[in-house]
Design a protein around this nucleic acid. Structure first.
Lengths: 345, 345
DNA sequence: TCACCTCCTGTAATCGGTTACATCTCCATA
DNA sequence: TATGGAGATGTAACCGATTACAGGAGGTGA
């Protein structure tokens, strides 16, 4: 492996000059530049960035902590993060905590050990106290989930409003008994959507029954478990509002196995607008989130924080949208043209 | 930020002693250890790993180059890679090339600049020549896809056999005109599956028509495009073998919009056995790949290559399996119990 | 008491770059 | 001709760790 010294020797200049050529900086005579470049070529020299990194004390890497990448929601947010990261010369490292192999704590240490310049949490199970500690020593931004008792920048939709809008839509279309599938204890977003759900129900004077809360989780399997519980009820609800598309699909699939058709015998509302929602049969009515933008904005905030550590945390709310498809039965009176509603926070 | 010097000063010892304590190595007096640890605690010192990395010239990071993470196939392979990486103290960086933002070439430079210790390709668009060049200067392993004219270790299923098995299954169940949806020009796996398809067709004395090859790609949208082309044909084929579950689902969804039901009016075979295959309506008959194991094995080979650079490239073939569900109509004669077949390469 | 060994600790080189500062050359201007 | 300044280049400190080597303290055996 050739080093900068080898190049300097081959070109008959000092390492400083080679470094200047590499960084295309000022004041090097054109023929010197040429000589250095020839030496670089001849030796097939590739600068070792660790040296630079150590000197400059910046890694140009950021860490994204994500519960899973199997869910398209996260992969889209990550794409948004990546696009802005790349524009600014950053590389993205992914910490997938789902497997439980790498504890979050372990990844957080990477930041403390200066292996990355900042962290974006798409979800966290750490205590707020630890996160605050971390945020003192390293730029941190949250996307999608809000972590209580922390002073971090957060990017997300207005989950309360989104839950409210989804539930209102079901109510407006004649549904009265509405179950709610979520993971409220794990995800703040789920809890907030539930608040919106409750608000809408209250406005219509309906008190939600205890059994309607199916806190099974957000995965396909969670949806299946929720279906099992629904099937044991005396009266099937009119509708189910699931806090993720995966859960909604697990639900529809399981109910269909018992001859209950979504969009006909029962209405199902999802959340996220994953690509599969459009391709599922029946196509899934769901709440669309601007995933790419969430990621992009989060990365922008992080870069801002890296470059200007003393800046105040920000709260960015992006618009969501109801995506109306076939899995929710519409009231006959409802005008057909109203296929979409845009709600700006 | 406290450095090792600060700790040394605070503990009244030299940096060498602190380093020895940190690396729990030999010969430090217990009370010295204690003093150092107290200083570490007091100063809230976290070692900066860049220093160590530079000195040891190993990053303990590996790069995974992946076309997309939206497809569950890849996210599972990545999980497999991560699990083995973690067991061996490595961290995983992800390079997602789908966006087209970061060119593969750019990521490959990360290896040459010693920012990572090795690379796993899950797919590549680089010329074989470049890859060979890269492999000379850095440990490289391929998973899933075979890159022709290269001497790299590869982990995958036997794609020819898998294509053959899937097609044979369709033929055995009475299907004769069988279209094939793939991305043969982009993915070697697709091309190999096509070879298997052709082999099976030939064995049954059927010459595939030109129009049956729908080289639209592997995404949902690709499936939809394939459906459009099918619908323009004079005679709809009996069955379609798609080289990915996503394409199969795009296909089913689009056909269903025209009143054509998969599993009844036409048979659809997918590939990958993503989770959605089980939850789709109709549930998708597909070829299951051991994704986790592919990832695990690839990482094992890479670690082996890192620790022993002169070792010979290996070719590892893992078993696939036909997952029989509802999207393929079975011949009436077919015994119901034979729901699954395991094929070992 | 001396030589020698073991155990512990410190000094300084090193990894591969970047960069502040010094130095030198050359040319323009007074 | 002397002076000053701009531009090009070199020297060496530095980033934060690891580690080879040197050396000192203390114990053991002759």
């Amino acid at each position: 492996m050739a080093t900068i010294k080898d190049v300097a020797k081959a070109a008959g200049v000092s390492v400083a000059t080679v470094s200047r050529v590499l960084n295309t900086s000022e004041n090097v005579r054109p023929d010197t530049v040429e000589a250095v470049q020839r030496a670089i070529e001849e030796l097939d020299y590739h600068p070792n960035f660790l040296g630079r990194t150590l000197r400059r004390l910046e890694t140009m890497k950021i860490l994204v902590i994500v519960p899973t990448i199997s869910n398209q929601f996260y992969s889209r947010v990550i794409r948004g993060i990546q696009s802005v990261a790349h524009q600014n010369g950053y590389h993205v490292m992914l910490a997938i905590t789902e497997s439980g192999l790498d504890s979050e704590q372990e990844y957080v240490q990477m930041a403390q050990r200066k292996l990355v310049d900042g962290i974006i949490f798409l979800h966290s199970t750490l205590e707020p106290e630890r996160i605050n500690e971390l945020a003192d020593s390293c730029p941190v931004v949250c996307a999608n989930e809000y972590i209580p008792h922390t002073k971090l920048s957060v990017v997300s939709i207005d989950n309360v409003q989104a839950g409210y809008d989804a539930t209102s839509f079901l109510l407006e279309n004649g549904h009265r008994s509405i179950a709610f599938v979520s993971a409220s204890s794990l995800y703040s977003s789920s809890a907030l959507r539930r608040d919106g759900y409750l608000k809408a129900m209250a406005e219509w004077g309906i008190s939600a029954e205890e059994s309607w809360f199916l806190n099974e989780g957000l995965t396909f399997k969670a949806g299946r478990r929720a279906a099992d519980r629904l099937l044991q009820m005396e009266n099937l609800p009119d509708a189910v509002f699931a806090a993720s598309d995966s859960a909604a699909i697990g639900l529809i699939s399981a109910l269909s196995g018992h001859g209950i058709q979504a969009g006909k015998d029962i209405s199902i509302m999802g959340f996220d607008n994953n690509q599969i929602a459009e391709y599922y049969i029946p196509a899934l009515t769901t709440v669309s989130q601007p995933q790419m933008e969430i990621g992009q904005k989060a990365m922008e905030l992080l870069i801002n924080k890296i470059q200007n550590p003393s800046c105040e945390p920000q709260r960015v709310t992006l618009p969501h949208r109801l995506e109306i498809r076939a899995s929710v039965r519409l009231a006959p009176s409802r005008p057909a043209r109203e296929k979409e509603r845009k709600i700006h926070p």
